[in-house]
Design a protein around this nucleic acid. Structure first.
Length: 562
RNA sequence: GCUCCCAUAGCUCAACGGACAGAGCGCCCGCCUUCUAAGCGGGAAAUAGAAGUUCGAUUCUUCUUGGGAGCACCA
């Protein structure tokens, strides 16, 4: 079975083809307003433009063409040319009996999703957290839709700052301390180095020298850098584990491409893609209305972008992906545009479609960038711990009856769920305001609300055995839920199209609201009509299943008790 | 200076050029001897400003105002 929306779209397309050879784009949507039908379409308006006829006239033609359809109760024309479709009850019962086939738009295609990308020796901040959660959602979504997903973590481990870190380590470093608390210690060295540089400019030179050695593949410095990477990664992995993020397929530092850069630049020069300008090599991008991209500095050193190009070449060569998603903040919009333009000019991306999944800033409650009063960044780790703490307090207050172990489990799942939902419920392009103090909302459009609804549904199911039900006993409010259930796949397609989770969040919230309203107003277990009772048990089981699947796609766990 | 992004209810967010701009929080009102009140129902409340394109504009174009990001030797 395909979704009702798909079904109607196909139907209308067929009818429209009789009127014109080239189909215009049109909408088929569910408006949640009963007099606009189960689904409505603006196809007549779209056709009116090319056929130069009135929308009403076209709508009438389509209507008369489709009116005999066995699933449709009626078709209405309203609002100057909208076509509203009303399905028969039997259709919805049919939809419920034969659930939708799982869609598989991926068809086994390979996609690389590049996300998280923290810098080693530095704590992950709230921006990394957003990138990580968006990326993890996309990885789960693509997997669910039958793509072969390669999760890629491109670590920042190159640049003069690592010269500072190595110089600082050689001066003041304590190996034991670093092994114990790597990121804290390394950050301290970095901060101290920058502080002392003000009084002692020679330090900067030392840092540059250490970095230059690194560029020359100096064994000792490479070894140190590698060690920094290993211990940082150990700490990152603790956070990923705590968050319940899918494991990455590839974790690679930028520095790993270093050896390929000179051949790469030579190749670009030979092809005439890169040209000499003011002593440096640039790739002009006027054709793309972009400023030129610098790939080699006048001192011969390479840049971030150069390594990004090398990484792209490596990815394409090694994995032959059909698609590469870069989950990276909007401040790098230009950078990604340049990368994609270069890929096109030099033919680097193979068959892969490149896509920048850009996202906005995470702002604090005052609408400014999130920071403590001292101006430090707020660490992702602290946000996670803080929200679980908040959840712990609430749970121990609300459920004094539960065991400590169970309360702890609920606190973790509700806290993390609240956090993730907070980042995933909004469209990714806008800046979002994140107030760590208010982040765990229990009411309304929040993960705990969805988790609570799931628990309520499961709890009803747990109290009884199910038997054979008679679906024809369903009433309007049951059908409302069936309608919602059948839209799930369409919602996932929207998420895929926009690389955004907010459609799914909105859907799950709507479904949960329907479900809550349903069991609030409809006694199920006490229903004397056993066939209807069983039918409704099947219905809420399906609703719970949808909630669970949807939450799982957002990386949010469900519970049986809350 | 140039380029790009953003501006929707008191607050936080929705709305692929479509029919009356939807939600949540907060506020006001009602519902717990009945499957977990982390719930359900109801109410007040918004497109920054000006012009244009269109049958139709929150959406597209131009300008204004206000915020943010980026723009050759950082990553």
């Amino acid at each position: 079975m395909i979704s009702p929306q798909q079904y109607l779209e196909n139907l209308v397309k067929k009818a429209a083809r009789k009127l014109t050879a080239k189909l215009p784009h049109f909408e088929m949507e569910s408006k949640n307003i009963s007099r606009f039908g189960d689904y409505s379409s603006n196809v007549a308006f779209s056709l009116a433009k090319i056929l130069k006829k009135s929308p009403i006239e076209i709508a009438r033609k389509i209507k008369s063409d489709l009116e005999e359809n066995r699933y449709l109760d009626k078709i209405e024309i309203a609002g100057g040319g909208f076509i509203n479709f009303f399905f028969k009850k039997d259709f919805w019962l049919e939809m419920f009996k034969n659930p939708l086939a799982k869609i598989n738009p991926g068809k086994g295609k390979k996609v690389i999703i590049d996300y998280s990308s923290p810098n080693i020796a530095k704590p992950m901040h709230v921006g990394h957290l957003r990138a990580t959660l968006i990326g993890d959602f996309l990885a789960r979504l693509y997997k669910f839709l039958d793509f072969k997903v390669i999760g890629w973590n491109h670590l920042g481990d190159w640049g003069t700052q690592f010269g500072m870190l190595i110089a600082g380590y050689k001066k003041w470093g304590d190996k034991k301390k670093i092994n114990k608390e790597p990121i804290r210690e390394l950050l301290e060295i970095y901060v101290r180095f920058n502080r002392e540089i003000k009084n002692n400019p020679r330090l900067l030179k030392q840092a540059q020298e250490e970095f230059a050695k690194l560029e020359r593949q100096d064994k000792e410095n490479k070894k140190i850098l590698n060690w920094f990477l290993r211990v940082s990664l150990k700490e990152f992995n603790q956070l990923y584990k705590k968050l319940g993020i899918l494991p990455f397929s590839v974790v690679k530092g930028e520095s790993e491409y270093e050896k390929q850069l000179i051949p790469l630049i030579n190749d670009l020069k030979n092809k005439g893609v890169a040209i000499l300008s003011q002593g440096a090599y640039i790739i002009p991008l006027e054709k793309y209305s972009l400023p030129p991209a610098l790939v080699q500095k006048s001192d011969g050193a390479t840049l971030y972008l150069t390594r990004e190009i090398a990484s792209l070449i490596y990815r394409v060569k090694k994995y032959q992906p059909d698609e590469i998603l870069y989950v990276i903040g909007s401040q790098q919009n230009l950078h990604l545009k340049q990368l994609f333009a270069i890929a096109q000019i030099a033919g680097l991306s193979g068959k892969a479609k490149l896509r920048h999944v850009s996202f906005g800033w995470v702002l604090g409650p005052n609408g400014k960038k999130l920071a403590t009063r001292e101006g430090e960044i707020i660490e992702a780790q602290k946000i996670v711990d803080q929200i679980i703490n908040t959840a712990r307090k609430i749970v121990s207050q609300k459920r004094k009856d539960l065991s400590k172990k169970e309360k702890e489990k609920i606190a973790r799942i509700v806290g993390l769920g609240g956090l993730k939902y907070n980042f995933l419920k909004d469209g990714r392009n806008s800046d979002i305001v994140f107030d760590p103090k208010k982040a765990l909302s229990l009411q309304g459009n929040s993960a705990p609300y969805l988790q609570y609804t799931y628990v309520r549904l499961k709890s009803i199911l747990a109290k009884t055995k199910t038997g054979k039900g008679d679906f024809s006993l369903f009433e309007d409010k049951d059908i409302e839920i069936i309608k919602k259930l059948t839209a799930f796949e369409d919602v996932l397609e929207n998420c895929l199209k926009d690389s955004s989770s907010h459609h799914l969040a909105e859907y799950l919230f709507g479904l949960a609201n329907l479900a809550n309203n349903f069991y609030e107003t409809t006694p199920i277990l006490k229903d004397k009509n056993i066939k209807r009772r069983n039918a409704r048990l099947a219905l809420i089981k399906a609703a719970a299943g949808n909630l669970e699947t949807g939450l799982e796609l957002m990386g949010i766990e469900t519970l049986n008790r809350i």
